[in-house]
Design a protein around this nucleic acid. Structure first.
Lengths: 140, 140
DNA sequence: TATAATTTAATTGCGTACAATATATAAGAG
DNA sequence: CTCTTATATATTGTACGCAATTAAATTATA
């Protein structure tokens, strides 16, 4: 029997693609409670770490481009979670700053990682291995 | 220093989400040559294995629902790669059948897995480990 | 066997994703 | 000090991706 490189079962990318979607799907009902999508959630996570960043820096951190971030940030702004302001020194930059409301949302989000962990059910060792391998891919 | 569950660095889902997108992005220029998106590509892969399947079966195999598949399959039909026909025994089903053109596209796609492998650059052992872990997630 | 419950796709609405392009600002070259 | 080049966002267009709903066909049940 000849090896078939186009068999779904022989793909590495397919389970990567599918697993990512399935896990994001598990987040959805949890994030709904705090009114965020998954992409908005990781954006807020970046801003919970550093209260301000320009679009470019956010994009590099989150692996997203302005085509995704600009409308997303406008939605977060409409929700009162962030502010967007053109940079004063360099007007090409748009500084995104988290608001008090955005900061306080963090308290409500604190339970989410643990709740998700419960429905993911992987050993610590497997999680660590997976984590390392995924960052190997991201570093390329 | 207290453990911060909401740090991007401490997430497992984030690199999963980001790596999946990055890998799909690597496929894009290769798939463009044969006129497919990544999702269309895995759909064709399913049909290269089994020349016909209904939407439900495709959805289960590919982890996609009809909201994604219906318009995607219509595009593949417009491109002449598949045919869609209501089932005769059970008219709820829509049978998707690959055309000759769809079958012959497989030849052009044969190089893609190897080309991608070259720009992914993981050891066989790492690939295998990752594969197993991703399917652990998918089985839940 | 009439009716209720289930199943299968399609549709709707919203939010990503991203390539390609446009626009505005800033930096660099001559 | 112009003119070119580079940089940072925004916009446009296409294609997902999925929750929720709808519609039609089938199956189960009283």
């Amino acid at each position: 029997m000849e090896y078939n490189p186009l068999k779904l079962e022989n793909q590495l990318c397919f389970p990567l693609y599918a697993a990512a979607k399935e896990v994001v799907k598990k987040y959805t009902p949890l994030l709904r409670k705090i009114g965020l999508t998954y992409t908005q959630y990781i954006t807020m996570m970046a801003l919970w770490e550093d209260r301000a960043a320009n679009v470019k820096a956010l994009g590099e951190k989150l692996f997203l481009d302005s085509g995704t971030l600009t409308p997303l940030l406008k939605r977060l702004e409409t929700a009162g979670l962030v502010e967007r302001r053109r940079g004063e020194a360099d007007e090409r930059n748009v500084m995104v700053t988290i608001t008090d409301k955005g900061l306080s949302l963090r308290e409500k989000a604190l339970e989410i990682p643990m709740e998700l962990g419960r429905c993911l059910d992987m050993t610590a060792a497997d999680s660590k291995t997976l984590y390392v391998l995924l960052y190997k891919i991201l570093r390329q």
